[in-house]
Design a protein around this nucleic acid. Structure first.
Lengths: 199, 199
DNA sequence: GAACGTATGATACGATCGTATTACGATGTG
DNA sequence: CACATCGTAATACGATCGTATCATACGTTC
């Protein structure tokens, strides 16, 4: 079925942000990209600030849904590894999404409305990640003792840091290297086993 | 001695970026903050893009110089720990600077001129960090075997990731936690010894 | 002391910005 | 049928944007 006008507006904003950056986003540009009038954009978004907050939630939902949909087969460690890969810019689609995330996250540092969204995101990320680490401890898939919450905080920070470096210095940190470094990191907590070689 | 007009212009840009964000920066705002005319800003910066690139280098020099000036006394690991702390938003001054860095780094994802600066920065960071890890291996201050380059890449990414999380979700990752997580991380490579308790 | 480059300010131009207002057709409802 | 609501478009308003141009001092150098 055809995309609703509202979704087309939000997707247009995301497209512009991914390709030209968040500061190239204007009501008129979004309207043109979505193929609607300025009035239609205003109909769905009361103000530009509200439009940005809505679009931030929109893109985050898309990313986290994809991560949540990854396979849970195999060991807990393997499942975590696959899920975390969905947050890294490892192909064109994820690179686009990560660019949008980074742009919004950076603006969240000075925009309370966006900071609230970011707070919800990171809290959920850490919570889910800590659950996985705790589950691995229960099932004995660990190589050392550690606090699941600390491991979650450091792992999510590492993922976002590698994301930042991959996007802003692609020749300095390549995807294959990032995946290997993430494996090394996880391997310090969990037994990745042969899963490291599987997709 | 009094600050030169050029420095006042660059510092004004940094101030605006730290307090209101990079997208609130305009030639007129910078001129007003610096207490000079628009013409003076244009005299020192041919275009806005060039102004941003110059200011990015300006703030990076300030940060890296401060890190380079930290004490090298004690163990190699302790010196590295102190230097890395200069890149984290652990007080108001560093929080301001980190906000500016994050704003520029995010824009570097879509602005080739800024990406070049970021590439130089991260390359230098990884190089220096790897040197320190290698020196620690030479002097035997290590707790396991590892590749200095990999350790440098993952450590710099972790620092930037924690920086991102601390700035965009201050209640989710506090400074004391970040310092502890960084200590845990370094402790997996190096023998921090009692230095962990020292400043 | 005339000429000149440097540093600064004032101002004008056209473009674009976010937002508010208004109009108009389609749709549903009394 | 009358009328309200919803979705969409067109357009106008004042503000702000980046940039270009011109004028004016102040040194320095022939």
């Amino acid at each position: 079925m055809a995309e609703s006008a509202r979704d087309r507006v939000l997707d247009a904003l995301v497209s512009i942000t991914a390709e030209r950056g968040l500061d190239q986003v204007s009501i008129r540009e979004v309207a043109a990209e979505a193929g609607v009038s300025v009035g239609t954009v205003q109909y769905y978004c009361r103000s530009k600030d509200q439009m940005l907050e809505t679009a931030f939630r929109h893109i985050l939902t898309r990313i986290t849904d994809r991560a949540a949909a990854t396979s849970r087969s195999g060991s807990v460690a393997q499942a975590l590894r696959r899920a975390l890969h969905e947050f890294l810019p490892l192909d064109d689609l994820r690179r686009r999404e990560c660019r949008v995330y980074l742009a919004f996250a950076a603006r969240a540092a000075v925009t309370p409305g966006l900071a609230e969204v970011q707070h919800e995101l990171l809290g959920e990320m850490r919570r889910r990640c800590a659950e996985v680490f705790a589950a691995a401890q229960e099932s004995g898939e660990v190589v050392t003792d550690f606090d699941p919450k600390d491991a979650a905080a450091v792992t999510t920070a590492l993922v976002d840091g590698m994301l930042l470096h991959m996007l802003t210095d692609p020749t300095g940190l390549r995807g294959t290297t990032a995946v290997r470094l993430l494996d090394d990191h996880l391997g310090r907590y969990l037994d990745l086993g042969a899963g490291r070689a599987t997709r």
